[in-house]
Simulated scan of single mutants.
Amino acid sequence: MNHHISEYYDKNTIYVIGNAKTNSDNAITQKFNSFFIGFVINGDTSEIIDLSCSATIRTTEHFIASLFIGKKFGKFDKDIEEEVKRRYLGSSQKAIIVAYKDAVKKYSELKQK
């Protein structure tokens, strides 16, 4: 099936990627060299509507998405950090938080322009 991109995301959406380093023994590092999360954000409400990440297992990506989708993206949210620490017990836990912080910083810089 051939889709046009406009069918997926409205013109008011913003895409931002957060990057982080992972442990050298992490499978993600072996495959991608770093960990990254791409967030799709509603530019009007700052709500996270979609994301993908450099996870090596599909379930990991789905679980990480469940931690973020529906949350606000205007500023770093300590509650999200705490939820990641409590619920995500993989070796990329710190990298998820760092990638999230990096993306929020980039988004905040864009919004200030």
Rank of each mutant, 00 (worst) to 15 (best):
I97P: 00
K21Y: 07
N12T: 10
V16M: 04
V98I: 15
D25H: 12
I5K: 14
E82C: 04
I37T: 04
K111A: 05
N19L: 10
G38F: 09
F35P: 05
I49A: 09
T45R: 09
S66D: 15
L110A: 11
G74H: 06
I69F: 02
I64P: 02
E83M: 05
S54C: 02
F32I: 02
E109Q: 14
K71T: 08
K85E: 09
R86T: 08
D25R: 09
D79E: 15
S34Y: 11
I64T: 02
E7Q: 15
F68M: 05
I96S: 01
I80V: 14
S6L: 08
N26G: 06
I57S: 12
V104D: 00
K85N: 09
E81M: 07
K111C: 06
V40T: 10
S108F: 10
A55C: 12
Y100L: 08
A65P: 07
S54Y: 05
K21R: 09
I96R: 03
G70M: 01
F63E: 12
G90M: 02
I80E: 00
K105P: 04
R86L: 11
H3M: 11
I37W: 02
H4I: 07
A103Y: 00
M1D: 13
Q93A: 12
G74F: 09
V40G: 04
S46Q: 09
N19R: 14
K71V: 05
V98R: 03
N33I: 03
I37Y: 00
V98S: 03
I49F: 04
M1I: 12
S108D: 13
R87S: 15
I5Y: 15
Q112L: 06
A103H: 00
E82H: 07
D50M: 01
V40E: 09
F36Y: 11
V16T: 01
R87P: 06
I64C: 01
G90F: 03
S66G: 14
Y107A: 04
I49S: 06
G43S: 01
G74T: 10
S91M: 12
A27L: 13
A65R: 12
F68C: 03
F63N: 11
S24D: 15
F39G: 00
D102A: 11
E47L: 04
I97T: 01
A20G: 05
I28L: 10
R87V: 10
S108Q: 12
T13D: 13
E61S: 14
Y15W: 12
K113Q: 10
K94S: 08
C53F: 01
T13C: 06
N12C: 06
K105N: 13
S54E: 00
S52V: 13
I69L: 05
N23L: 15
G70E: 08
F36D: 02
A65L: 00
D50N: 14
K113A: 08
F73E: 00
Q30M: 13
